[in-house]
Design a protein around this nucleic acid. Structure first.
Lengths: 232, 232
DNA sequence: GAACACGCTTGATATTTATCAGGCCTCCTA
DNA sequence: TAGGAGGCCTGATAAATATCAAGCGTGTTC
């Protein structure tokens, strides 16, 4: 497939530095598809046939066990998901569903493994990406084990404020029930947690969040780079 | 340093396939040191000067926040730790301390990054190792978010039984207070959890665990490969 | 516009988990 | 051998979190 069909994919950090003919091998048999919201793209346990790349929209990674379900992460453009399963040729550990209308590129896992073996710069880029993902999950585990649900919410809001260029007011990017699941709590508990944070200047109306005094909230949340900083 | 000083290191999966002269570059400035128990080898936040390799003994990886502390993993021979921080040249996300008398090899992080860029097979091995670590942390997060502490303990015991070649009786390899922290609970709660599992044939005496009927415990624990299987 | 679905909220209650305090036992040391 | 420290256990209590059951509001559909 000619790369002009989805040129944005070439911009991915993962594909920088790799030889053009290797990139073309990678793209062989790849395709882009538009999905409506709430479509399950992959199910945990399935063999990893394709590396997925979110070009637009967003995708929820989630897992289940015995009828319970939990949201693990949200993937936004432009990033890949299930890279580790692809490389290891192992079953997916998480399921994925579109949160909104999304455009997804699908690259045959076999291509990724083939090119990974022939292109050292691609292998290096994969190392960097996997190291980033690994550290991100470690931070998330620390967040879960070291903080109460109220502290997790407070720090989540502080991180979201940074994403929103430190605006005093911003919108939640995911619905509250999913946020609750992501933070490891029930929707009811999240609702009450928002109310508790009013004591630290957090005002919530629908998806709109206003942080009247960041330093006030920080005094409670005690954010810490080794948990909250996305860039290290 | 001649490799004969610690030949076992050459057997690491991570170093298979790499060129001998690259291995020698890696070992330049490396050394092995014996540590008594309870020595803090690295502290979270420190710059990643050395890749650590546990040759004998065992090492606890842990993290803290606001006076709280949690055990993240135990590293046993022969494995590396803090590979991701080394590769990214980023600060450690976890601290490490010896659990017992341990022999640790220290390889300058800079060497690792240098050789990683010149030896494609080394880069590939690092990819495999990071993918394994990433998936292992994902499983651990699923375990934490989807299961109660009692379920986590039950599944932990089932996994330990497999490690002990399915013996009906085996010893806990870490002390209970650390096991509690690893499982995300308090020592008191762990003690009560062991008592609760008596209903499913688990008998504990000191470090000795007896599982009288594995299938009985499995009916409660509902182990699942996508969380509990170490090899996928 | 009425009816409905759905997500969110709230209150009451139950369960899970943590904290605190005390006691037991073992191991180490003076 | 007598303390003493530390890990472990137990009971009582407190805090955190989940569950259950309404109700509210908004947006959609017919």
């Amino acid at each position: 497939m000619p790369k002009s069909h989805f040129p944005e994919i070439r911009e991915l950090d993962l594909f920088q530095g790799m030889k053009e003919d290797h990139f073309l091998i990678l793209m062989r048999g790849s395709y882009v598809q538009n999905f409506p919201p709430q479509i399950e793209l992959i199910s945990e346990g399935d063999p990893s046939d394709f590396l997925h790349i979110v070009l637009s929209g967003s995708v929820d990674l989630f897992s289940g066990w015995r009828g319970r379900e939990t949201s693990m992460a949200t993937v936004t453009p432009i990033s890949t998901f299930i890279l580790a399963a692809t490389i290891k040729n192992a079953p997916y550990l998480m399921s994925a569903r579109t949160l909104e209308k999304s455009r997804i590129a699908l690259v045959p896992s076999e291509n990724v493994r083939d090119v990974f073996e022939m292109d050292p710069l691609f292998a290096q880029a994969i190392v960097m990406e996997l190291a980033r993902c690994y550290r991100s999950v470690i931070k998330s585990t620390k967040n879960l084990k070291l903080r109460t649900s109220l502290e997790r919410l407070a720090n989540y809001l502080l991180r979201q404020q940074i994403r929103a260029d430190n605006a005093a007011e911003f919108d939640l990017l995911i619905e509250k029930r999913r946020l609750a699941s992501f933070l490891g709590m029930t929707p009811e508990n999240l609702s009450r947690a928002f109310k508790s944070l009013r004591a630290y200047g957090v005002i919530v109306d629908g998806t709109r969040v206003q942080i009247s005094d960041r330093s006030d909230l920080e005094r409670f949340a005690k954010p810490c780079p080794l948990i909250d900083d996305q860039s290290i």
